[in-house]
Design a protein around this nucleic acid. Sequence first.
DNA 1: TTTATGTAAATGATATATCTTTAACCTCGG
DNA 2: CCGAGGTTAAAGATATATCATTTACATAAA
Lengths: 232, 232
Amino acid sequence: MDKLSHFEMPVISGEYITAHEAVYHRLRNALMVGAIKPGTAMRIRALAQYLGHSPTPVREALRRLSSENALQVLDNRRIIVPLINAGQFEELILLRVKLECLAAERALPYVSQILIDHMITIDTQMDRAVSKKSFDALSVLNQEFHTVLYTANPNQTVMPLVESVWLQLGPFQRQMMNKTLSYYVVDHHKHIINALTQRDTKGLCNAIAADICEGVGRAGKEVFASQSEQCA
Amino acid sequence: MDKLSHFEMPVISGEYITAHEAVYHRLRNALMVGAIKPGTAMRIRALAQYLGHSPTPVREALRRLSSENALQVLDNRRIIVPLINAGQFEELILLRVKLECLAAERALPYVSQILIDHMITIDTQMDRAVSKKSFDALSVLNQEFHTVLYTANPNQTVMPLVESVWLQLGPFQRQMMNKTLSYYVVDHHKHIINALTQRDTKGLCNAIAADICEGVGRAGKEVFASQSEQCA
DNA sequence: TTTATGTAAATGATATATCTTTAACCTCGG
DNA sequence: CCGAGGTTAAAGATATATCATTTACATAAA
């Protein structure tokens, strides 16, 4: 439990009404930016004490994250941050491409100039984050950029699945961020914005696919190449 | 709680070790075959009493299903079987196509003759279920048919998302089954098997897309056309 | 009659106690 | 020195009690 202090779990925005929600969001954020190393065991009592709650809501939060594939329940009933191998990583990237292209396509009819401006604002903030090398901020902004687009569509069926995939890639965020930076993702965002402005469905898909594949996709390959074999 | 008897929740296969798992699987199955009508409230205490457990594991099961988008948590904290509209239904079908094509493609390299034979066996059972008009059995067999294929791939990242989508479509299973029958889905399964035998990736995708679109897809459209507007 | 308001009942959320399972360790026999 | 078996400690699972919120209902005032 003493070991948990390195989780760096930020308390986000407004207070969450229920304890389980507070715990959930705290853990989720930590996972999303890669603050918890794959393989780490999430012990209920330890977390409960660390976060100042009783075991019940902590348990719920852990189960919720497990359902979202962000945590893995072992046969021993222990819950850990999943270890994934190169093959699974590859599939997660493919999933991102398929899901996010669909999400973008479906959002396109609902995209307004105001929304595009919003995305441009976020992109500008990202440029600043890049030059400051604020990795965690960059992660969050990048997600915000994509989220703003995908949630323009009032039928929210794709987004929950996208978030599940993001969560699964989260633990590798920090390892990859360094590498990703060198590929300079932000250019692709300009392409995305162009495609939106021109209502170009095909171009939008290509831009998003490129953003993903040449960003996390390539960085991930390097990360997984350097480590021989890692089994789940 | 007296009202719950119409859930028709089968106790499936081997006993589940933990209570929350037993409850989860029971509810999941009920949702999957459409035994619980959209809009139904899932009250913790009522379910606990009905299923002979304490509230705690029931709560967990409900939360888990909520995370999988199979149940909806309202602002009032009540949990219900979601009501979806035509737009959301359309997207769920699109998701099935995209996800299942990906799952099939990724599974193809791992497909053996034994596995194909297994699928043929299931398909034969489906033919019998069709002639007997055993709708629930047909649902289960159809899922089994697809599952056997997709899980040939050892990297299981796509399948959990597929199951989430299936669960979301579940509540409409029974309404659609009648209509689906008239379109006679089983033919598409033969196409799928052919494509597998010939290792034809493109053909496989087409067959799966056809199976989905001309099965549930078309049936769903009719269901949603007949009911004017239904909001979530 | 309608609406506001207060109270009681229902329901969800959480803390706690207890039970069960798993893991760690230690002794004893080979 | 190593492994089997048993004992203890740790961690998860569940039942229960209690707290907080929401809903339902009834009463009273406009």
